[in-house]
């Protein structure tokens, strides 16, 4: 019996299997997500609010259902994002590592194919990501960055809403489900 064996919410049971994806999917999807963040805001300024790398991290972590895999996925995507920013590397890396770990941990207790659960988790992890990034910026880099709570909540809802169809699209790239012990 593992440490996450019981469902928290009655009626919304845990999934019994982890999803598997091809290596090309693991390579290309995060790359395209980072590329989207680099390229699209040039033309649509509001697209800078979409945190596609975060949504991809959450998705893969939820579907892999292994905290170690979630941790590594988050770290790699975060560092890739860091390397395209002008800030010291590790800021997005640390935050997304935590997101990946917690998303994978949560996935062992919920049915993460339920759209409502996905919506809530998408919103929660966006808020967590932004808040923790803000904390790290102030604590580690001494940056006087503001945190607009209202805007973060609104953009969190937007990201969660965009995450729903994105997750459905990514579900199509799934190869097989492997039953967990």
């Amino acid at each position: 019996m593992s440490e996450y064996s019981e469902a928290i919410i009655p009626g919304i049971g845990r999934r019994k299997a982890a999803s598997r994806y091809g290596p090309a999917v693991f390579l290309l999807v995060p790359l395209l997500a980072v590329l989207f963040q680099v390229y699209v805001p040039r033309f649509v300024e509001s697209a800078a609010n979409l945190e596609l790398p975060l949504l991809v991290t959450v998705y893969f972590s939820l579907m892999r259902r292994q905290p170690i895999a979630g941790t590594l996925i988050g770290a790699v995507i975060g560092l890739a994002q860091d390397s395209l920013s002008h800030l010291p590397m590790g800021m997005f890396g640390i935050v997304k590592t935590l997101v990946g770990y917690f998303a994978a941990s949560v996935s062992q207790r919920f049915d993460v194919e339920n759209p409502a659960i996905r919506l809530i988790l998408g919103f929660f992890f966006y808020f967590f990501h932004q808040f923790f990034y803000w904390v790290l910026s102030r604590a580690l880099l001494s940056q006087q960055v503001g945190f607009d709570l209202g805007q973060t909540l609104v953009v969190g809802v937007l990201n969660a809403a965009v995450g729903l169809p994105l997750f459905v699209m990514l579900d199509r790239l799934r190869q097989e489900d492997v039953a967990l012990a």
Binding site: V34, Q37, V38, Y39, P41, R42, A48, P53, Q81, D82, L84, S85, H86, L87, F92, Y133, S137, V145
Partner: peptide, 8 residues
């Protein structure tokens, strides 16, 4: 292209 930083 543009950067990935939050307010960058």
């Amino acid at each position: 292209g543009s950067s990935t930083g939050a307010n960058a």
